[in-house]
């Protein structure tokens, strides 16, 4: 970028080099967030701790002990980062995977729902996009509904889909995956429509001079052109799919899955459990999106499309 016109002259401090990239600032911001978190934990948990001391009849507690105690409550209002980390370690590494308390056990359930929903959603999204690109009628009639389908708060329907399908004998992954599907098909449809339309007129004309059939044009020109768009929208779709899977687990009455852990935690006031489930979900989302990013990089590199 030729952004030199407005940028201020570099300072000469030794930190300048370290802080001019992205990594330095990100680390600082993360550290700041953790510091704020600790302060917040102390502030939010202080009232309860004071109460405990009063009940125990202790009046003069040294500050260090007070702070230490606020950060080590069993059911804190806001658990401290290290408490969450310890809980995460306990429930992933130290528990057997088959145990109902193992977070890995619950994550696998959520993960399989997410992947199934994502798979159906992506396939549906691609099919819709192909239809929309090739048929003017579909574009004019269906596309507005695809867009307005997302203004409907679908997650509201989630409990009903689960209960209704459960009553008609369909249980297990599929009902939950359908919610993921609903959330994840939209970005794929929109992205693919854009992608399949992205070849320039001159390329389409070239295919025409080769007297390529519609299918050949689709397979050899449109689809390769759409791939970068597909990967971008798949990342959004994957994140949405995970949200759908978590919400889908709520109305089943907290049986299994990360959503169930959240619900059970909120029933019993187990804040540390909620936070660890939350972090596990974040980790899952991050790694799934990163995985798609990696595939994207490799595929586009092989196709010679990478920038």
């Amino acid at each position: 970028m030729t952004d030199t016109a407005l940028s201020s002259p570099r300072s000469l401090s030794p930190f300048a080099g370290l802080m001019s990239g992205t990594a330095g600032p990100v680390v600082v911001v993360v550290l700041a967030i953790i510091a704020i978190w600790y302060l917040g934990a102390i502030a939010l948990n202080a009232a309860f701790q004071q109460d405990t001391y009063e009940r125990a009849g202790r009046t003069d507690v040294p500050l260090v002990e007070f702070i230490g105690d606020t950060l080590a409550q069993e059911r804190p209002k806001l658990p401290a980062p290290h408490q969450v980390a310890v809980e995460l370690w306990k429930t992933t590494v130290e528990k057997k995977i088959t145990s109902k308390r193992s977070l890995i056990h619950h994550s696998t359930i959520t993960l399989s729902t997410t992947l199934l929903g994502f798979f159906i959603g992506t396939s549906l999204g691609i099919l819709l996009a192909v239809g929309i690109v090739h048929s003017g009628v579909l574009e004019k009639s269906l596309m507005p509904w695809v867009i307005s389908s997302q203004t409907i708060p679908v997650l509201a329907i989630a409990p009903m889909i689960i209960v209704v399908l459960g009553n008609s004998g369909i249980t297990g992954l599929l009902p939950k995956a359908l919610i993921s599907t609903y959330l994840s098909f939209f970005p794929v449809t929109v992205g693919m429509v854009k992608g399949l339309r992205s070849p320039e007129v001159i390329h389409m004309d070239l295919m025409h001079t080769y007297s390529a059939s519609r299918f050949q044009t689709f397979w050899k020109l449109r689809l390769p052109y759409a791939l970068p768009y597909l990967f971008t929208s798949m990342k959004i779709g994957m994140a949405a799919s995970l949200v759908g899977a978590i919400i889908g687990e709520l109305p089943t009455g907290a049986v299994a899955g990360l959503g169930a852990r959240l619900l059970a935690g909120s029933y019993y006031g187990q804040t540390i459990q909620i936070w660890s489930a939350l972090f596990m979900a974040a980790f899952l989302a991050g790694s799934l999106v990163a995985l798609i990013g990696l595939t994207e990089k490799l595929t586009l590199k092989r196709m010679g499309l990478s920038r």
């Binding site: 990239g21 992205t22 330095g24 600032p25 990100v26 600082v28 911001v29 993360v30 967030i33 997650l155 990342k235 959004i236 994140a239 995970l242 949200v243 978590i246 919400i247 990360l258 959240l262 619900l263 935690g265 909120s266 804040t271 909620i274 936070w275 489930a277 939350l278 979900a281 974040a282 989302a285 991050g286 999106v289």
Partner: peptide
């Protein structure tokens, strides 16, 4: 701040934030 917050903001946008609801 822009360099530090933007990547984090992007990351958080992809997370299932809805999970903070019980908290």
């Amino acid at each position: 701040l822009r360099r530090g917050l933007l990547p984090i903001g992007n990351l958080v946008s992809a997370l299932p934030i809805i999970g903070v609801a019980p908290i």
